[in-house]
């Protein structure tokens, strides 16, 4: 790979732009395909470009035969994202676990005592009220939302936005009793059963988790399960 092509790939990833690197496995020639413009060592015809963009949309990589050539399409989509509402003890474990799993992490909490950089080193913090924060963060089908405050003042505004978004996963911390009250409030606020039914609660897979780190692990396991059971890009592309 030419170093300048690698630099352009790194730049596109830093800008969170979807990009595919296409390699002719016979000649070694390579080109980058963005949604709109392309640069690189050889030209692809329109059909090939359409195929590359389809792979990108479906978040797939693989070899396609074009004429006599074997082209390897390597899709680089921006990372999946997790929005954690509540800069609580569980969030301190969930943020690094999600980061390890390759997610971009944002922790939302307007309470300054919780949302400190000391408690969340290297994590993006958002101090807005959760509904404003979530609207601003523009939730797409590659985003998971987890509420951890179990305080209706903070969790409910977040759920109001998340339940009508394209988020591939919505989870809320709280016992069955807490969740029952939450469901009642959401009904009163006009949410439908199918919207309310999107909430994973009690949050996380049932693995007997007790400590904050164990609960974080059970949440990340559940997000992973939902992600691979119903891949967001395939659902969106269908």
């Amino acid at each position: 790979m030419k170093n300048d092509l690698l630099q352009r790939l790194v730049k596109a990833r830093a800008e969170k732009r979807p990009v595919a690197l296409v390699t002719d496995l016979g000649s070694g020639l390579q080109t980058l395909v963005h949604d709109d413009v392309d640069h690189g060592g050889f030209g692809l015809d329109d059909d090939a470009k359409a195929e590359v963009r389809r792979f990108l949309r479906e978040d797939r990589s693989g070899i396609v035969e074009v004429g006599d050539s074997q082209l390897f399409i390597h899709s680089f989509n921006p990372p999946l994202r997790i929005i954690i509402v509540g800069a609580v003890h569980i969030a301190q474990a969930l943020a690094p676990i999600a980061s390890l799993a390759g997610y971009d992490v944002v922790v939302v909490d307007p309470r300054r005592a919780f949302a400190t950089d000391d408690r969340f080193p290297g994590i993006t913090m958002n101090g807005e009220w959760p509904d404003d924060a979530l609207k601003e963060l523009n939730i797409d089908s590659r985003t998971a939302v987890v509420t951890l405050t179990h305080d209706p003042k903070l969790d409910d505004p977040a759920l109001h936005v998340a339940l009508r978004s394209k988020a591939f996963y919505v989870g809320s911390l709280g016992s069955r009793k807490t969740h029952g009250k939450r469901v009642d409030r959401l009904r009163e606020d006009g949410f439908t059963e199918s919207e309310i039914g999107r909430i994973h609660a009690p949050v996380g897979l049932s693995i007997g988790a007790v400590s904050p780190a164990e609960i974080a692990l059970s949440i990340m396991a559940q997000i992973t399960h939902v992600l691979h059971r119903d891949p967001p890009d395939k659902a969106a592309a269908a």
Binding site: L6, R13, L100, G102
Partner: peptide, 15 residues
């Protein structure tokens, strides 16, 4: 440490 970002690693090593 554990790395997801292999192309960035490649660019850093090259640099």
């Amino acid at each position: 440490t554990y790395q997801n970002d292999i192309v960035e690693q490649a660019a850093a090593l090259k640099a």
